[in-house]
Amino acid sequence: MSYRRDLQLLRRAQKQAKRQLRQLAQLELTGLTAVTLHAHTRQVTIMLASATGAPFTDTLREVLRERRQALRAEAQQLLLTWLADERLRERPAPAAGAVLP
């Protein structure tokens, strides 16, 4: 991609984020709870009544927290594996006929 194309995509994303923040602020002022779901090409904001919104958002927040922790643990394990592989690669191979300790 070119720099110009990247800049256009960035500006479009900034405008979309501003629109979303305005929409969520309006919903909050009216006393509604809203959840925004993001995908690569789309986002959907779902408005919920306050009575049903609070338990839903609490459950969603808990699930997302658990998912983040699982991803963090997986990333840590991958990093440790990669570091161990790098240490093995850095060791010089023993010369042919050399006695191993």
Rank of each mutant, 00 (worst) to 15 (best):
Y3V: 03
L7I: 01
Q8G: 14
L10Q: 12
R11I: 11
R12Y: 08
A13P: 13
K15G: 06
Q16R: 14
R19M: 10
R19W: 03
Q20G: 08
L21W: 06
L21A: 10
Q23M: 12
Q23F: 15
Q23L: 13
L24K: 08
E28I: 01
E28W: 11
L29D: 15
G31T: 01
A34M: 03
A34R: 10
V35G: 04
A39T: 15
H40M: 06
H40D: 04
T41V: 10
R42F: 15
V44Q: 11
M47R: 14
L48D: 00
A49G: 02
G53L: 04
P55M: 00
D58P: 05
D58K: 07
D58A: 06
T59M: 15
L60E: 13
L60V: 06
L60I: 05
R61W: 08
R61T: 08
V63K: 15
V63N: 05
R65F: 08
E66W: 12
E66M: 11
R67L: 11
R68A: 07
L71F: 11
R72Q: 15
R72D: 14
E74P: 03
E74S: 06
A75D: 11
Q76E: 12
Q76M: 12
L80D: 06
L80I: 05
W82R: 08
A84H: 02
D85N: 03
R87A: 13
R89N: 01
R91K: 00
R91Q: 02
R91G: 04
A93K: 04
A93E: 01
G97P: 02
A98D: 13
A98S: 11
A98L: 13
A98E: 15
